[in-house]
């Protein structure tokens, strides 16, 4: 089954002092019309430990200052309307994620710095991409091709999540070399 629901997360090297500050930032994004797609509302889960933090809920995708998938970071969660091959779908998610991550990092209110030497991907559909060897084999080539493209052909070190088989299929991909959100955006044009 094609990839329709994908999560892309960049971890923070310098997390914001208060993740609740992202509430103001996301409301501003809606007011300024400064994010692609149809943003709907802001959800506040700052009170939940290791929770989804602050989420800009959108129709096609959510953006979050998130604490669920590992340490705090920026999370892009695609929910619907992807098209094309799996590689194109992953690239589309990357492109949207990089644009929003750059915008979030630039916001002086947060002082967020992201670690681009690794990226976390979670396949948010247990039926389409089960957390099995076969599930990973079915998407692995497309995913690696897309991530490599996003990182300008850099070498990748893919680490599939081990442990809880109840979790979704997830990988953390380490990337050789120095990268910035601007360079990633350039690679994704």
């Amino acid at each position: 089954m094609a990839i329709d629901k994908l999560i892309v997360k960049f971890f923070a090297t310098e997390p914001p002092e208060r993740i609740a500050d992202a509430i103001d930032v996301f409301h501003r994004w809606i007011q300024d019309d400064s994010i692609d797609g149809l943003p709907l509302d802001v959800a506040d889960y700052a009170h939940v430990p290791d929770g989804p933090g602050i989420i800009l809920i959108g129709h096609e995708a959510d953006h979050a200052l998130d604490e669920t998938e590992g340490p705090v970071g920026y999370m892009y969660r695609r929910k619907r309307l992807l098209a094309g091959s799996d590689e194109e779908r992953v690239l589309a998610c990357f492109k949207a994620a990089v644009a929003a991550a750059a915008k979030l990092s630039e916001d002086p209110k947060l002082g967020l710095k992201l670690d681009l030497s690794r990226v976390r991907l979670v396949f948010n559909d247990r039926l389409a991409q089960p957390n099995t060897d076969a599930g990973w084999d079915a998407v692995s080539a497309a995913v690696q091709a897309a991530v490599s493209k996003a990182y300008g052909g850099a070498d990748l070190m893919v680490e599939r999540d081990a442990g809880d088989p109840r979790a979704r299929l997830g990988v953390t991909i380490g990337v050789a070399g120095d990268h910035s959100l601007a360079s990633l955006a350039g690679n994704l044009v």
Partner: peptide, 27 residues
């Protein structure tokens, strides 16, 4: 319910004052 909250909603399960679980932002 954990799986459903992740895949269809916002990964949060909410206990209501009437012993239900509510999931939000579902299409």
């Amino acid at each position: 319910m954990a799986d459903l909250a992740e895949e269809y909603c916002d990964a949060i399960l909410h206990v209501t004052t009437r012993q239900d679980i509510q999931l939000h932002f579902l299409h």
